[in-house]
Design a protein around this nucleic acid. Structure first.
Length: 872
RNA sequence: GCGGACGUGGUGGAACAGGUAGACACACAGGACUUAAAAUCCUGAGGGGGAAACCCCGUGAGGGUUCGAGUCCCUCCGUCCGCACCA
């Protein structure tokens, strides 16, 4: 019996050094083995790694190690998503340069990740703030610019007047800047954009081939792209009612079938027609200003009452020159969707209905359910938005919704207003082009120069990278690049006259949109090495949080296409990530003092159970409020530091814990007892390996010709477990693989007492296979046990074992026997038994006879190898 | 409002493809070892009835399909997530 304990922290350091020295995880292009690119979303270097972060990397590492053992040439890299606001905030608050802050964090976090024993090829590491990375990003930008995939336009932005910066929508909370708390203004700014909408259809259509992506993510992306098919319809304006020069109004509709239910037109406050009309109408101008002020934040939209202002303008119904409809400016029409104008059909749209009721506009039912009576069908408080049969619609009456759509489209396409047709079909998208300008210092400079004479001039490629100045100041709000005394002043590359650098930097989502490409050749002097990219891409398994389901993944998909269009990637590479897995978070209780200060779990002592649980602050003895379980985050301090954890329990315990119990896509709650369980198992495996080394046959012992029944049973259990664990790792069902390993450990431990024929050999085999199975999950422990079993090779170099097929199927099996669907007994019978044999045996079973009493057997269902159901 | 997912013991969860529900783990109870504790090992356990054999009930609720439903279909309840004036 082993009496010592496994000293995880010490042994883990040892094995990490061995792996590093042998460079076992270095990936090389090419070779005979099939490739596998395993990638976890790279971290932002925020400071330190906590146990919450570790789950993502552990899952990727299990897969990477498994694939390696399976004979794949594995690429498993790591880097840093290193540009971004937190570094600048630190610069403002702590007077430390963003670069220094970032690189120091990287040093700390790299050491922490290394201590997890990840099978990373560290030679490929880079940070997106390295000039050696962003240089190539600037080159990509210039190529996008050339191809028209990058452009400048004026657009509305959220402007924080205190921090003097543009805010993303997520950074606006209740209409206020998330940092400054100042009310956010809407401003028109000229910004840089990527033309993601050029690929709208492709981005949508290709979702269907991403069969290894979660359905949920594909759906979210499809909704985000938001394709709709409709009709652009031009309405003439009644002369005399419209401002000079305004003769028509173009609207977008997906429901042209409801055209005869129209009772008003609605346009956005920023619509050109609204602006023109407001010139001569003070009240209207005031109304438009009011609409703009209420903003576009979510909160504002939710609370805003639907309001309209009758401009006095009248529009002519396309099918009836005598039918005139009022044109309202409203606060609920968006200028940047469709044409910023609609016709309102109150009976077919809830929002239009509410508007019509408020302004006493007609409500004409035009669609009714198939079985309704047109004489009695009316619209009450709810619009009828389903498909149905047309009524009150002249030539459409009696048609179904789809046919009516077509009929209207066909007629209006032939009608002429002026010289052009009244209507044309139009596919519309919710997706907008991607605004990438940020008025920040800590980002990739946009490599263009503004010249009064030449306009926008790209920085010559030979001048790349456009480096960030080291001596920026962060003591006042605003863009440090803009106020830097010299940086932006440069001669125009074309005419040589004084010109000005672009001081906007790129959204950090740009950095993370192609890093996975760069990993395939991180030292290449062009952005991409075609040979390496072609070899490694696409990423075979991508793992990360669901919070990136839309933006990051969509942007990366765009980049793959844009890089294809600019010749950096081959065009046949449609998708960057062949398989995607979104893992759940690690959550933890939160703790606060009476005055609302967050406390680390390490600062808190918790006692009692259930409702009697109480917590006190260790340092002060003061009571602590136990808050809800939430995702581990720095801001709420409900984190367990990885260094603390590893020095206490070791990396393998952390890895095992985050893989156990909860399905990987679901959240797992961090609890001390859960960790104890993982730690106990680490020790148990270690002792078990020792015991097996003692009681099992020596390594390399010849396989006995005959196994007794117990040894045979053990072997069957082991090979079945191996089969199950292999499948479950491949399917990323780590929690089930863990359970099967537990089960095997139990079986093996129980078998240690047996002295059956061939048992020592079976025990050795079982121990070896068990150790190999835990290898991807607890690699240090497995390596240690491998050595204890008498090997001087490295486990990490061993191929993944294959189960013996003969041991996976049993000769005799036990199947359940039901009477009228209720389980009454079981039957142990040869696996190959025929239906008749099974039926005969089942009918003789004592519990079956009893349950049937004297009723006649009506029918017997026999599903060989599964079940018997006697119906009586 | 629209779209989606989920609901299984005290707890986390398992159950291939409609075929023995509750694997495995945690917590719990009893026992062994120990002067004692820790650690470790063994045993028990969905609920109810019964001394036991065994019987009844049981996967959010109700209904349906089926020889058979946690799994498929319908209705409802609850929880979570995404989008949200998208025309």
């Amino acid at each position: 019996m082993a009496s010592e304990r496994y000293n995880a922290p010490v042994r883990e350091k040892h094995w990490q050094a061995v792996w590093a020295e042998r460079q076992v995880f270095r990936a090389k292009d090419g070779g005979k083995r099939p490739k596998s690119y395993v990638l976890e979303m790279f971290p932002y270097p925020s400071g330190r790694i906590h146990v919450g972060h570790s789950r993502n990397y552990t899952m990727g590492d299990v897969l990477a190690r498994y694939k390696r053992a399976k004979g794949f040439n594995v690429l498993h890299p790591m880097g840093w998503d290193a540009f971004g606001m937190p570094a600048e905030n630190a610069a403002m608050e702590k007077r430390v340069h963003p670069a220094k802050w970032t690189y120091e964090n990287i040093d700390v976090m790299r050491a922490q990740l290394r201590s997890m024993g990840l099978s990373i090829d560290w030679d490929r590491e880079f940070a997106t703030c390295d000039p050696g990375y962003y240089k190539h990003q600037q080159k990509l930008f210039l190529d996008f610019l050339k191809k028209g995939l990058a452009y400048r336009k004026s657009s509305k932005v959220n402007w924080d007047p205190v921090d003097m910066t543009v805010l993303a929508n997520e950074q606006v909370i209740d209409g206020r800047g998330w940092r400054s708390g100042a009310p956010v203004e809407q401003r028109d700014l000229t910004q840089w954009f990527f033309r993601i909408t050029k690929f709208s259809d492709d981005l949508l259509d290709t979702l269907s081939i991403l069969d290894k992506w979660p359905e949920k993510v594909r759906l979210m992306q499809a909704n985000w792209i938001g394709r709709s098919e409709g009709l652009l319809v031009r309405w003439a304006l009644v002369p005399g009612t419209a401002p000079k020069g305004s003769k028509e109004l173009e609207i977008y509709t997906t429901r042209p079938d409801t055209l005869f239910g129209a009772s008003f037109m609605a346009i956005a406050p920023d619509h050109p027609l609204a602006k023109a009309a407001a010139k001569d109408n003070v009240e209207l101008a005031a109304f438009c200003a009011e609409c703009r002020r209420s903003g576009t934040s979510v909160a504002a939209l939710e609370s805003a009452e639907k309001m309209g202002f009758d401009t006095g303008i009248r529009a002519v119904h396309p099918f009836d020159p005598n039918w005139h409809l009022p044109v309202y400016v409203t606060n609920f029409i968006l200028m940047d969707y469709g044409t910023g104008a609609i016709f309102g059909c109150p009976s077919g749209d809830q929002r239009d209905l509410e508007f019509a009721r408020k302004y006493k506009l007609p409500v004409i039912p035009v669609v009714m359910p198939k079985d309704a009576d047109p004489a009695t069908f009316t619209i009450g408080e709810t619009a009828y938005t389903e498909d149905g049969v047309m009524i009150n619609s002249r030539f459409l009456d009696g048609l179904d919704t789809k046919a009516a759509f077509e009929a209207v489209a066909e007629r209006l396409e032939k009608e002429k207003l002026g010289r052009k047709p009244v209507a044309k079909r139009k596919v519309n998208y919710r997706l907008r082009d991607w605004g990438i300008s940020r008025q920040r210092y800590w980002g990739c400079p946009i490599p263009v120069i503004h010249c009064e004479a030449c306009g926008i001039v790209p920085v010559p490629e030979s001048d790349l990278p456009v480096l960030l100045p080291d001596d920026a100041t962060f003591d006042v709000p605003g863009n440090p690049l803009e106020r830097h005394p010299t940086w932006k002043h440069v001669p125009c590359p074309q005419c040589g006259k004084p010109a000005r650098r672009e001081t906007d930097t790129m959204d950090t989502f740009v950095d993370s949109s192609w890093y996975f490409v760069r990993f395939t050749a991180p030292h290449a002097d062009t952005p991409v090495n075609a040979k390496s990219a072609n070899y490694w891409l696409p990423v075979d398994q991508y793992i990360g949080g669901i919070e990136h389901a839309i933006l990051h993944l969509l942007y990366s998909r765009f980049f793959t296409r844009a890089m294809g269009a600019t010749g950096h990637l081959k065009k046949s590479l449609k998708e960057p990530f062949a398989a995607l897995f979104t893992q759940g978070m690690v959550t933890h209780e939160t703790y606060r003092t009476r005055n609302g200060q967050w406390l680390l779990p390490a600062e808190v002592q918790v006692e009692g159970e259930g409702e009697h649980r109480k917590a006190v602050q260790i340092a002060s003895g003061q009571p602590v409020l136990i808050g809800p379980v939430e995702k581990m985050s720095k801001s709420k301090k409900n984190i367990v530091d990885l260094d603390d954890f590893i020095s206490q329990f070791g990396a393998d315990t952390a890895r095992w814990f985050v893989l156990s119990d909860s399905p990987p896509e679901r959240d797992v709650i961090y609890t001390d007892v859960g960790v104890q369980g993982a730690r106990r198992f680490v020790q148990r495996v270690w002792r078990l390996a020792e015991d097996c080394a003692e009681k099992g046959a020596p390594s390399g012992a010849p396989r006995p010709a005959v196994f007794g029944p117990q040894a045979e049973a053990l072997r069957r259990a082991v090979h079945k477990a191996l089969n199950g664990v292999s499948h479950n790792i491949e399917g990323l069902r780590f929690n089930v693989a863990v359970a099967q390993i537990y089960e095997l450990a139990n079986t093996l431990q129980a078998a240690l007492g047996g002295d059956d024929e061939g048992m020592p050999w079976a025990i050795r085999e079982a121990a070896e296979l068990l150790v190999q199975m835990i290898g991807p999950m607890m690699p240090h422990l497995a390596e240690d046990c491998w050595a204890r079993l008498g090997y001087n090779t490295l486990l990490v170099d061993q191929p993944w074992p294959e189960p013996e097929a003969a041991l996976l199927v049993d000769d005799t099996i036990t199947i359940a026997v039901q009477v009228n669907g209720k389980r009454r007994g079981e039957l142990t019978i040869a696996r190959t038994a025929s239906k008749d044999e099974i039926e005969a045996a089942a009918l003789q079973l004592e519990p079956v006879v009893r349950a049937m009493a004297d009723r006649p057997v009506k029918k017997v269902i026999v599903v060989p190898q599964r079940i018997v159901n006697v119906v009586g």
